[in-house]
Structure formats: structure tokens, C-alpha cells
């Protein structure tokens, strides 16, 4: 089977600093892959390269969906989303002054088409499209468990709900691959548990592959099929959760030279 995402020897330099060094990574269809590593290892930079916020210095990024393989290097972020990769942000970036429903409706933007004239004249097609956007968005909120907040402003949501709304908004773009940047950051144990179920549920019901960056190792070990470990922009290990837990290089990277310290 062809991988959904295939990254070949990706390198990203900032001036003299090499943030990512020859990184290879694959995500198979319906797979949950975790990207872990110490702070500053280049994980978020990696996401930014895939989603077109940064243009990588070298290497290739391929997305394969429905048997078509496309190179993503150099595409603008909105084109990448259109091709089928959606993401969330480490430091929540919701549209704070819009309602929860509107946040999700924005996600539908790239899958709808009505324009200026449609907006002004509100013809039948535009009306139908708009109604569908509203009902689709509401369905996503129901699925994510945020439907009781529909008309709240995003800024007034509790923290955990804001993180979930980011996921809902990303799902609205109908991705094949979902990139989650520390989805559990700042959540309590109960919220993390719920998130855990949500991520697995998204994978199982929507057939979406998931690549996540996460520091909560319990979460990572519970849900990931495979784990990549990076440090200083380089891949230091790869494998299933059990292999990673036993890998000496990983233990060293996380605990330093002396495991007793």
C-alpha cells in the first residue's frame, strides 16, 4: 500500500541553523503516527514545512490520495489544505471573535465555491450551499462533542474545548491526513482520556491518517501505531511504542547521558 504522506530527506535551514536534517517519514493510510522529541527538536518546524508555511531547503514531500501522488514542496498553505492536509496549532489559533460554529464553517470554505455575486443575490445554489455548510459544520461539532457551545464565541470556551475546536475546524476541511501539534498540551487527565478516544475515533470512522506531535508519553504510547523520535532535527529512532520505550538512543535523548540522574 502506498503511504499517504511520504517525506524524503527533508532539510530546513534558518540562516546557519539547521532545524531539520535529512528527515524521512512515512504515514500509511489510517495510521496514527507520533512525532516525539525534546523541545526545540524541530517538530513544529517539520509541520510548518509540510503545510507550506515554510519552504523546505531540500527534500521532497509527497501526498498520495486516491492513487494520485503529488509533490507538495513550494505550495502555499491554503493549497496544501486543499490537497487534503489539515492541521492544528500548538498555541491555539482559533478565530477568537467568531462563534464556535463559524470557526468550523471557515473550515468548509475550501470545499465550497459561492462567490461575491452569489453572496449579494443569494441565488438558490448559494442558499443551498450555505445551508449545507451550516448543517455539516453542526454535525462535526456534534461528533467532537462541542454542540452545546455552537453560538459561543471561541474565546469564551474552556481551554480543553478550544483544543477540540481546533480539531473540529481542521476536520471540516475534509483532510486525508490530520496533523495535530500537541493536542493534549495543558489538558487534565480526564480531558486527555477523552482526546485519546476522539483521535482514535476520527481515524476509525473517517479513515483519516493522523500525524501528531505530543509530549504526553502515555497518550502517545496508547494510541500510536508507530513513533518517530527526533532530536536536533535528526531522526534518532523509529518503531512501534514498545520498541521506542526500549530504545537506548531515545532514553539517552530524553534523560541525558546518565539514566540515573
Amino acid at each position: 500500500m502506498e503511504p499517504v504522506l511520504e517525506v524524503n530527506s527533508l532539510t530546513m535551514d534558518f540562516g546557519g541553523l539547521r532545524a531539520i536534517d535529512q528527515l524521512n517519514l512515512r504515514v500509511m493510510p489510517s495510521e496514527i503516527v507520533a512525532l516525539i522529541g525534546p523541545n526545540g527538536a524541530g517538530k513544529t518546524t517539520f509541520f510548518n514545512c509540510i503545510t507550506g508555511i515554510y519552504t523546505p531547503s531540500a527534500g521532497d514531500i509527497f501526498l498520495s490520495v486516491n492513487g494520485r501522488r503529488e509533490r507538495l514542496n513550494g505550495l502555499k498553505p491554503n493549497r496544501v489544505t486543499q490537497k487534503g492536509i489539515a492541521r492544528t496549532f500548538q498555541n491555539i489559533r482559533l478565530f477568537q471573535n467568531m462563534t464556535v460554529l463559524e470557526n468550523v464553517m471557515i473550515g468548509r470554505h475550501c470545499r465550497t465555491s459561492s462567490g461575491i455575486l452569489g453572496a449579494i443575490f443569494r441565488d438558490r445554489r448559494t442558499r443551498l450551499e450555505e445551508e449545507k455548510v451550516v448543517s455539516d459544520s453542526y454535525k462535526i461539532l456534534e461528533k467532537i462533542g462541542l454542540d452545546r457551545f455552537v453560538n459561543e464565541l471561541a474565546m469564551n470556551l474552556p481551554y480543553g474545548a478550544q483544543r477540540r475546536l481546533e480539531i473540529a475546524r481542521a476536520l471540516a476541511t475534509e483532510p486525508f491526513l490530520l496533523l495535530l501539534d500537541e493536542p493534549a498540551a495543558g489538558m487534565n487527565q480526564k480531558e486527555t482520556q477523552e482526546l485519546d478516544e476522539l483521535i482514535v475515533n476520527i481515524r476509525d470512522t473517517e479513515n483519516i491518517s493522523i500525524l501528531l506531535i505530543e509530549h504526553d508519553m502515555k497518550l502517545v504510547m496508547r494510541i500510536s501505531d508507530r513513533i518517530y523520535v527526533v532530536d536536533y532535527g535528526k531522526k534518532i529512532a523509529r518503531g512501534n511504542p514498545l520498541e521506542i520505550q526500549r530504545n537506548p538512543a531515545v532514553i539517552k535523548a530524553y534523560l541525558g547521558e546518565d539514566p540515573d540522574a
Binding site: 491554503n78 489559533r93 478565530f95 465550497t112 476541511t173
Partner: peptide, 24 residues
């Protein structure tokens, strides 16, 4: 409308807006 929402989203957060597939 769809366009109006995109404008507001752009005002709120340009990067997130692009990540939602909106052409800035």
C-alpha cells in the same frame, strides 16, 4: 456570506486562516 466569514477569519488570524484553505 462565505466571503464575509473569510474576511473576518483573516482579520482574526492570518496563519490559521490560510491553514483552513483560504487564499490570503
Amino acid at each position: 456570506s462565505r466571503i464575509g466569514r473569510a474576511w473576518i477569519a483573516l482579520r482574526e488570524d492570518e496563519i490559521a486562516c490560510q491553514a483552513m484553505g483560504i487564499d490570503r
